[in-house]
Amino acid sequence: MRTVFILPYAFPAFMSALLWRGMLNREFGIINDWFFFGADINWLGDPFLAKVAILWVNLWLSYPYWFLVCTGALQALPSETMEASRMDGAGRWRQFRSITLPLLMVSTAPLAISSFAFNFNNFTIIYMLTEGGPPFPGTSGLGSTDILISAIYQISGVSGGSADYGLAAALSIIVFIFVGIVSAIAFRQTRKARRSSHG
């Protein structure tokens, strides 16, 4: 079962996104054919459904990494602490809430920070799956699934069309500052959690 769970980790993200783009195709995709009895569901053309598709594909791609790290962290938990809590009469829920979860949070907090920074700038999934679309009515380029990094790509004119280098540079600086602030706050919270768990 573990091998099945980590299979998505073996595929490059851009290939997985292209694969899902084909499977979610409105006309010949297997998602509509197999799971919705041939229904005409426009997964990548409807603004809401396109966001759902992106979240699902990103979850499918990132789950194996979290699975490996969390199972490794669970196996590294001190057995003496768990045994002592059982002898003190703690039930499974109490063990999970007071011992397992705090220790697991200390181990996985850096992973959560790096995952946030990566997904905040996850250009690959957006570009390969929806290319930022479907576009907003009356706009040229920007779409309903664009994130800041893909919007910067569109505004910079790399994909064609008019380029606004000043706006693209300003947005890039905003992305850098935002990710830096969130990472600093998260690292501070991780340090506090580590101190409290050792205390």
Rank of each mutant, 00 (worst) to 15 (best):
T3E: 14
V4K: 08
V4C: 10
V4F: 14
I6P: 04
L7R: 06
A10K: 02
F11K: 00
F11L: 15
P12C: 10
P12N: 09
A13T: 05
A13Q: 10
F14V: 15
F14I: 15
A17M: 03
L18V: 12
L19G: 10
L19W: 09
W20A: 00
R21G: 11
G22D: 13
M23Y: 11
M23K: 10
L24E: 04
G29T: 08
I30Y: 15
N32H: 10
W34L: 15
F36P: 04
G38Y: 11
I41C: 09
N42Q: 12
W43G: 03
W43K: 08
P47F: 02
F48S: 11
F48G: 05
L49W: 00
A50M: 04
A50T: 00
K51S: 10
I54P: 05
V57C: 04
V57N: 08
N58T: 11
N58W: 05
W60C: 10
L61P: 01
Y63E: 00
Y65K: 07
L68H: 03
V69P: 07
V69M: 13
A73Y: 00
Q75T: 10
A76W: 02
P78Q: 03
S79R: 14
T81Y: 09
E83H: 14
E83C: 13
S85W: 05
M87I: 15
D88H: 06
A90R: 00
Q95W: 03
R97H: 12
S98T: 15
S98Y: 08
L101D: 02
L104E: 03
M105C: 11
M105V: 12
V106E: 03
S107N: 09
I113G: 04
A117P: 10
A117Y: 08
N119W: 06
N121K: 11
F123S: 04
F123I: 06
I125A: 01
I126W: 03
Y127M: 09
P134Y: 07
P135I: 11
P137E: 12
G138Y: 07
G141F: 02
L142A: 06
S144M: 10
D146I: 02
I147N: 00
L148W: 01
I149T: 07
A151K: 03
S156N: 12
S156M: 11
G160S: 03
D164G: 02
D164Y: 02
Y165L: 14
Y165V: 05
G166T: 09
A168E: 11
I173Q: 09
F176Q: 06
V182A: 05
S183P: 03
S183E: 04
A184H: 05
A184L: 14
I185H: 08
I185S: 12
A186T: 02
R188G: 15
R188C: 10
Q189N: 12
R191V: 13
K192M: 12
R194A: 13
R194G: 05
R195V: 06
S196F: 07
G199N: 12
